[in-house]
């Protein structure tokens, strides 16, 4: 919407050579400083962590952690997903999330989940569009921001492992 020109949006992987781009994004987007584990997980997740480029500018990222469960199943945890403020509303977040959801169609992946602050309605609505549901509420999840509570949003993937 709005922008009448075609600008290509592309995704690129995160490597140790360009990880600073992800750091820059996180500093600008989130009030939390992520530690080295976060970046190690992101690098280890391979295809599940991506930078989004608006023409040649890095403007957003999705970062995931792969959690191995017993029996070889894998849960995907979306650590962060964000787009720089001026570049929102251009479908970049959708593209990033769809990229990860497409990857999740592999048979051994059981679910994708994430945490979101309880008052972040727009984010919640955004994820609901993609089939995420609130599965849990955790009190006092955050320490320095209010409200401190968060929801766990989950999207079940593998039909074989449904227990219902």
């Amino acid at each position: 919407m709005g922008v009448g020109r075609e600008v290509s949006i592309s995704l690129d992987g995160v490597r140790d050579k360009n990880i600073m781009q992800l750091r820059k994004l996180n500093i600008a987007l989130f009030p939390v400083r992520y530690n080295d584990n976060y970046y190690a997980d992101a690098l280890a997740s391979g295809e599940y962590t991506k930078l989004a480029y608006y023409s040649d500018i890095c403007v957003g990222a999705i970062a995931c952690r792969l959690e191995k469960k017993d029996g070889g199943a894998v849960r995907v945890y979306i650590m962060t997903l964000g787009v720089l403020a001026p570049y929102r509303g251009l479908g970049i977040g959708t593209k990033l999330l769809n990229h990860v959801l497409d990857l999740c169609s592999k048979p051994n992946i059981s679910e994708v989940y994430l945490h979101v602050q309880t008052n972040n309605d727009e984010a919640i609505n955004f994820y609901k569009k993609f089939g995420f549901e609130i599965t849990e509420t955790i009190q006092n999840y955050y320490t320095n921001i209010t409200p401190p509570d968060c929801y766990v949003l989950t999207k079940q993937i593998a039909p074989s492992s449904t227990k219902k």
Binding site: I27, A28, L29, F30, P31, V32, Y34, N35, N37, Y38, I78, M79, T80, L81, G82, V83, A85, P86, R88, G89, L90, G91, I92, G93, T94, L114, H115, V116, Q117, N119, N120, E122, A123, N125, F126, K129, Y141, Y142, T143, I145, C150
Partner: peptide, 25 residues
Amino acid sequence: GAQNANSITSNGNLEAFSKLSIQQS
């Protein structure tokens, strides 16, 4: 001046958002 975690600034559009996560050790 960076965006607050739970503020969605642009045009109230749904695709625009940012979210939080806390690193677990």
